[in-house]
Design a protein around this nucleic acid. Structure first.
Lengths: 218, 218
DNA sequence: ACAAAAACATACTCGATTGTATGTTTTTAC
DNA sequence: GTAAAAACATACAATCGAGTATGTTTTTGT
């Protein structure tokens, strides 16, 4: 009689045999589930089911559900930082660099909207769900990273004002408004399976353009 | 021996004796709890505790937790519609009216951020939690009302483009970007207890200004 | 004043879910 | 080739929270 459970996937089935790819597989599916139903409404069993395995696998890698959430959040923030990094190194006046950062951020929000949706949920999951001291420490680090990310935009806005390429305006509020405008896409954007990079780029352009040029005609 | 449970509050304790104020009290507390912890993380017992009563009271008015959520959502949408209504009746060119609508919306988002936070959660609570046919019907009506609200802004943007007071741009994307910029405040804005109306108005102005005037200097 | 209805409180059921304990298979290291 | 470790699966415990059934008090209508 053959085994009821088939042989486990070999690394070559998936992406090239990178170390830790089994864990990454879990993170990706968790991000998808958390996006679709929200963190609290998603059960660990559900994530396992959609991976075609059992809870045992997930709890082999993660001590608790919230720790899995933290990893998804961390990955989401990593993608955000990596996306704007090239734009920040651009040479140009203050507004030009800011424009490039906003475009990069918009594209990243669309491309990784699964993860970024979960990042947004992280704002609400504060102190309540992090019970152990270790978890509270992790939570603090994640909040810090979100603040640092926003800080990059605040700094660039301030630089552009000093630069005279930007009118004088409230740096903090403007940063939140601009980022919010792009990040709100987690609520309305869903990737089409056949969507090309060029199409996403075009959508990102349509998003950033009214922010840079404003609404006034001249 | 006196009663363990004190006498129930009389209408005069709270707002003027409006019919249904006992229900409104529940809605308000539910909105607060749902905002602070999210719908799924909030238990009905918790809402009751913070009201100083028991579940019995809530289930006297509501058949289920999701029905309570629906009422909070409905109230949130009602506040949004009422806020922009005067602005929509303003006479003026397309951009002027749009500006007034955005200001009204920004102020409403700040003033009722508790309810509007819950409205945003409603986007994720789709088909899964609405089990009965009646609940699915209610859910559909709420989604429709959100679409109608966005439609008002899309129409006004289109009118302003036709009006030549607005450059040509993607109506749908621009509407989502503008509304998102203001609605993202649910994540960062929390009301100070001593905050005045004038202060909120000033904050709303700082939010809308970069959207209308854009970032470019000239 | 009194019956009916409204407005709750109390105590319970029951399903769903997180986390654990343990067994089994696969891989790795030597 | 073999022992150890990694990578799971299985079955269970223990909690928590939604919803219900029922009793009690307060209000209301006449």
């Amino acid at each position: 009689m053959p085994d009821v459970v088939g042989p486990r996937n070999t690394p070559t089935d998936q992406s090239p045999r990178k170390k830790g790819w089994r864990k990454a597989e879990i993170i990706d599916m968790a991000a998808l589930c958390f996006m679709e139903r929200g963190y609290h409404a998603t059960s660990v069993d559900e994530v396992a089911d959609r991976l075609g395995c059992t809870k045992g696998r997930i709890y082999h890698y993660y001590a608790s559900k919230i720790d899995l959430f933290f990893d998804v959040h961390r990955e989401g923030m990593k993608k955000l930082f990596e996306a704007i990094e090239p734009a920040m190194k651009t040479t140009g006046d203050g507004l030009t660099v800011l424009h490039a950062m906003l475009m990069a951020h918009a594209k990243a929000m669309l491309e990784h909207h699964t993860f970024e949706n979960v990042v947004a949920q992280g704002v609400q999951i504060h102190r309540f769900d992090a019970t152990t001291e270790d978890q509270r420490q992790t939570m603090k680090l994640l909040i810090d990273s979100r603040d640092r990310f926003e800080g990059f935009f605040k700094d660039q806005i301030a630089a552009a004002i000093a630069d005279k390429t930007l009118r004088d305006m409230d740096v903090s509020v403007t940063a939140k408004v601009l980022l919010g405008a792009l990040q709100w896409s987690i609520f309305w954007y869903r990737a089409r399976p056949d969507e090309t990079v060029a199409e996403r780029e075009e959508l990102a352009r349509k998003m950033v353009e009214p922010l840079i040029d404003g609404l006034r005609r001249n």
